[in-house]
């Protein structure tokens, strides 16, 4: 049974640790997903990452209607399976602990750096033979830069490669030393136009562009981690001519000639239901043709495109 969900206020909540990941940095990797994100991208596939604190989700398809949750709740917050009064609920997770079917699920578990290292350590031998390591993702891991820096440092002490996946939305004045034990930054970019970015992601992209510029400069001067941009391809939103050429020019200006394209799939829908969140807007499915068109357009504008997991890390000239 899940336990140890005692709050560690200064540590982030982890909503998933996934092993054998091949698409978020070189080799076989374990990804630590931290909860809490400043953006609210309309297409987000991990809505459980938004809130920094743990969430209770209800997976209706697993429920056997045993009503254990209803009877177990000390606050009487659950009227029927899946019907939880969020005002009464004080997130004690008694319902989750007692649910036999796994329909009541907790997203978010607090770890100390030590306990997270213990969770990750058994996977270390797999990294060595594949050039893999640990990737911090989210949510937005830069929200917890102290925790991430501490863990990255512990990982480096055991010679484990580290990567950090960021949406780039953090204070451009932020002390960059928290990246000193990060080998590679996977930097997500979305919309080039600021108004569009605010519309679809909920925040301006000015700081994101500043941070990308700053990290690229650090990387190319050999004083920062390697950097690799990634762009989710959302049909008719991020794969437009203006957006792709806008980013291509921007990347060229800061000396980056490569980009990972992450094709969009509508996988976040069920999770929003589990969390009782409004449904995500529908976006058309990405077709092979439009993917190819995007790749060609970017190539014409001097950017080589890669699929996730197929990046040419070795030839990028970056510290990886």
């Amino acid at each position: 049974m899940e336990s140890g969900n005692m709050a560690h206020p200064k540590n982030p909540a982890v909503f998933s640790i996934q092993h054998f990941c091949l698409h978020d940095g070189p080799g076989v990797r374990s990804i630590v997903f931290l909860k809490g994100c400043p953006l609210r991208c309309a297409w987000c596939q991990n809505p459980e990452s938004w809130k920094a604190s743990p969430d209770i989700a209800f997976k209706a398809h697993l429920c056997i209607d045993c009503k254990t949750c209803v009877n177990a709740c000390p606050q009487d917050a659950i009227a029927a399976p899946g019907v939880r009064d969020v005002h009464k609920c004080d997130l004690c997770f008694t319902c989750v602990e007692n649910c036999p079917s796994g329909a009541m699920t907790c997203f978010g578990k607090y770890y100390t750096p030590e306990s997270l290292m213990e969770e990750l350590r058994p996977e270390f031998p797999f990294f060595g033979n594949t050039g893999g390591g640990v990737t911090f993702s989210g949510g937005e891991p830069t929200l917890f830069s102290g925790f991430v820096a501490d863990l990255a440092n512990r990982l480096h002490e055991e010679e484990i490669h580290t990567a950090l996946e960021t949406c780039g939305y953090f204070d451009p004045q932020k002390d960059i030393r928290f990246l000193s034990d990060i080998d590679l930054v996977l930097f997500d970019i979305k919309l080039y136009d600021e108004a569009e970015h605010s519309k679809y992601c909920g925040k301006s992209n000015t700081d994101i562009k500043k941070n990308l510029t700053r990290l690229a400069a650090l990387s190319f001067s050999g004083t920062g981690p390697g950097i690799w941009p990634r762009l989710p391809l959302i049909p008719s939103i991020t794969d437009t001519h203006e957006n792709l050429t806008g980013w291509a020019e921007f990347l060229n200006n800061i000396g980056i000639s490569f980009l990972t394209l992450v094709p969009y799939h509508n996988m976040g829908g069920p999770k929003r239901q589990w969390l009782n969140l409004p449904s995500a807007p529908e976006f058309p499915t990405l077709t092979d043709e439009s993917l190819r068109a995007s790749i060609n357009l970017l190539r014409e504008n001097g950017i080589s495109c890669f699929a996730p997991g197929e990046e040419d890390w070795a030839n990028s000239g970056l510290k990886t």
Binding site: F20, F126, G128, G132
Partner: peptide, 13 residues
Amino acid sequence: KTGRKALSGIFRT
């Protein structure tokens, strides 16, 4: 190639 390297790597481990 990614899958090939990953599988051979984890089997070796």
